[in-house]
Design a protein around this nucleic acid. Structure first.
Lengths: 344, 344
DNA sequence: TATTAGCACTCTTTAGTATTGAGTGCTAAT
DNA sequence: ATTAGCACTCAATACTAAAGAGTGCTAATA
């Protein structure tokens, strides 16, 4: 028993109906609302088949049927490359993303905001990771007698501060000298190789500077460790309450607690790195707390390299057809903006 | 009819019982559990009086009684200066606050974490506002041909970055010159007066620098505006689900939505600036969404000036006696840490 | 052979009713 | 002034009946 055209149409109708109404769908409803030209009885037979094939689930004998994760998967796969975004939304995204935004982190945070506004789901975004990007400028700034601020600027326009302690005060002019020296030597190198590079260069340098740099070096290494910390933004977290499947307080709590745990969320977002857009449905998710959720993520890139993710999370009964193009569009726009504004 | 010693004792017993059990308290319960040496009937009479006086409320005729906001107020006022913190907790706070913390913002964020961990309520903290602090160092760092990073370091050790656009490229050495010039001229001035100060000084300076500084000036002003944005941290947001009063999904949603609105939360925290510790009970709160919540906040200071707030929010039925000393202690420790580590 | 009308059957949902029990307020006795 | 006793109130709980949505099967139909 395969899944012929009619079965597919019925399945799609059921999915559509369930996504909009959140209630099990019966044969009569399909027959009346969707013009398939067959009687409820026929649809019933087909539905029975679809259940046997694993695409539908019955909450109980006398209820209608509900799409399974597998049904959503089929539905989504048939959808991914088709849907285009509404022109209005497209324009809206383009203008609202950069509206009043100057810094990269703000841009990402704002992306999350726009995403949740447009979709009415909870949105997530991780800020550019700079581990793969290259150093552009390094500057040491005095804070007080025992504290130094190191500012790193990367080629992707990301700025990172690290404060660290020093043993003896270093004069302003000396700091500038060191800054210039470090910038000259380390510019263009990958952030995660700065430590090695620094060691390599150090041996050849004049004593005067060498002494001071020796003090600073372990700090630079520590600072680089700090860089690996990933910033996570979310928005529209309370949107989850809009969905009847989360009227159950324990479910809502479980979902929100999961989101509160930054590490898990980041891990979830980074699990697959390669696809432009990825959709994880229900049990496909690795974390128990969100096995009744779907996740739609897109990657944004810079110079062809993945540097971050944006996405939307909500019940498996998600408005995929509406959300997918929005997420896609946000990512595309982010790529454009990064290209234009953050490297010339 | 006043509120004599016995009435007070009964009221306290009721409050205590209600705080721990979250259920209306009856006369029999008080008579049995609290050794007041009187019969339930007597207690009933007293309770009736206490209700008339506005300290108790009856959900319905055949239920026990529940403390009113006014009762909590009385209770809290009698409490504030008495309760001492447990030694264990005190030590715990002291060590855990600075554990692995280098930057000021981390410190505040961590304070929120410790606070929610110790109290099991939702904690809030606002990071030091630097509007009142004074400039220590200013440094311009190149990002690319059209972008400049301005780093401000204040006397309270706060670092603030602002990225802005420039029209024509400025050389590295020129940037250092400008940075030095700006630092020299503006050091020690209040952050919110930098703009005026800059204007004053500018007229007297040599032409060469003046030209470039003119370009930079509007940016500095803009950057200063940015400084006024207040960072808010929260932790243990989902703790609210631990309280039966938030089993109602609409109440939980209302609470969480309120917390999602950063501006309102900040406004709430900043409403009273002067007290060391402040407790706002139920309807005393200005925002509708939290009129059944209590808020306990403390101020932390630096050089005698209020620079931030930490606090806890939860149902009016809050474990005041437990929470107040913890909040207090966190603030005291913050003061100490700031004193020690961020200015010598 | 595929479709469909008809109908019995299942199981949740809703409404209605009775019962229970916690707690009060009043009265009369101490 | 205190308290035992008791009638009364009202939410919470349990139980029952009825309604309704939807299915699956059978037999009739095109």
């Amino acid at each position: 028993m395969g899944i012929d055209g009619r079965k597919l149409k019925i399945l799609q109708a059921i999915i559509h109906n369930y996504i909009t109404n959140a209630e099990p769908v019966g044969s009569r409803t399909i027959s009346k609302k969707y013009d398939l030209g067959v009687s409820p009885a026929t649809i019933r037979n087909e539905m029975s088949d679809l259940e046997e094939l694993g695409f539908l689930v019955q909450p109980h004998t006398s209820a209608g049927r509900v799409p399974s994760d597998r049904a959503y998967r089929l539905y989504v796969d048939s959808l991914v490359n088709k849907k285009r975004i509404k022109l209005v939304q497209k324009r809206q995204i383009k203008t609202s993303l950069v509206d009043g935004i100057n810094e990269l982190e703000e841009l990402i945070q704002n992306s999350a905001k726009v995403l949740s506004k447009l979709t009415n789901y909870t949105s997530l975004a991780i800020a550019p990771q700079l581990i793969e990007s290259r150093l552009k400028h390094i500057q040491l700034v005095p804070i007080d007698e025992t504290k130094l601020l190191m500012v790193l600027v990367t080629n992707s326009g990301i700025v990172k501060n690290t404060v660290f302690n020093i043993e003896k005060e270093i004069s302003n002019s000396q700091l500038n000298l060191i800054s210039n020296f470090l910038t000259k030597k380390l510019k263009g190198h990958r952030i995660d190789e700065l430590g090695i590079e620094l060691k390599k260069n150090l041996t050849k340098e004049i004593f005067e500077l060498r002494d001071v740099i020796k003090d600073v070096m372990p700090m630079i290494n520590k600072s680089i460790d700090d860089l690996e910390e990933i910033d996570l933004y979310s928005d529209g977290v309370t949107n989850i309450f809009n969905f009847p499947e989360y009227n159950d307080i324990t479910k809502a709590k479980s979902f929100l607690s999961f989101l509160e745990n930054k590490e898990n969320v980041i891990d979830m977002l980074l699990r697959n790195k390669n696809q432009d857009i990825e959709i994880t449905i229900g049990k496909e998710n690795c974390y128990e707390e969100i096995k009744n959720c779907s996740l739609i993520t897109a990657t944004y890139r810079f110079n062809g390299k993945t540097i971050g993710k944006v996405g939307v999370i909500g019940p498996t009964r998600m408005a995929y057809a509406k959300v997918i193009p929005v997420v896609k569009s946000i990512a595309v726009n982010l790529n454009d903006i990064l290209e234009k504004h953050f490297e010339l």
